[in-house]
């Protein structure tokens, strides 16, 4: 039990710290690397919630895929050497006030609710249950998702096509 609590606090500290570094880092390239750490930490949280399949998907798609394409976009739009990669933030005070107010509201709502303290017993092999649900009850959204991804990738190629 103490190991679980320790792991949660460690993961939580890594997640919050790297998320803060993502939004505060001056160097955009460093911000992307911190985002990779945050996404990997989220995979750890998924593991702690017994969702091994989702942790693998998170690592493959997010930490692998998104970080790669963001790095490509930075390379295309900025010069990696020199001062141009540094970025500034504006209206930090107002942003902090709005984000803090939203956080206080959410935390207030969470603390008012009676929430379960211990997770219930798992039904069966969770990965197998997710696979069964995707291919039976949710097969229609699954196929629509395939269509959406095809459309998104084709339009991304269309937008970023070279000038002719």
């Amino acid at each position: 039990m103490t190991g679980e609590v320790l792991a949660f606090w460690g993961l939580g500290l890594v997640l919050v710290g790297s998320a803060l570094a993502v939004v505060l880092s001056k160097n955009l390239f460093h911000a992307v690397l911190w985002l990779a750490l945050a996404l990997t930490g989220t995979a750890g949280v998924f593991l702690q919630l017994d969702a091994e399949f989702l942790a693998a998907v998170q690592l493959l798609l997010y930490a692998g895929g998104i970080v790669t394409i963001v790095v490509f976009a930075i390379v295309v739009t900025e010069r990696l050497v020199g001062e141009r990669i540094s970025q500034t933030s504006r209206r930090i005070g107002g942003g902090a006030v709005v984000a803090g107010a939203l956080l206080a509201t959410i935390l207030n709502a969470i603390s008012r609710r009676p929430l379960p303290a211990t997770p219930p017993a798992l039904p069966a092999d969770l990965t197998r249950s997710v696979g069964d649900a995707v291919l039976t009850r949710f097969v229609m959204p699954f196929e629509l998702l395939a269509l959406l991804m095809l459309a998104a990738l084709m339009s991304a190629i269309y937008f970023a096509r070279p000038d002719d």
């Binding site: 949660f8 997640l15 955009l28 933030s89 997770p119």
Partner: peptide, 30 residues
């Protein structure tokens, strides 16, 4: 850990992301 701990962690990360969206000037940062 209880459900409340995970919800709190997610709320903190969400608000940090919101702060980044509101304050970043670079579109990639947003």
């Amino acid at each position: 850990m209880g459900l409340q701990a995970y919800l709190t962690l997610a709320a903190v990360i969400f608000c940090i992301g919101l702060f980044g969206v509101m304050t970043r000037r670079n579109t990639i940062g947003i």
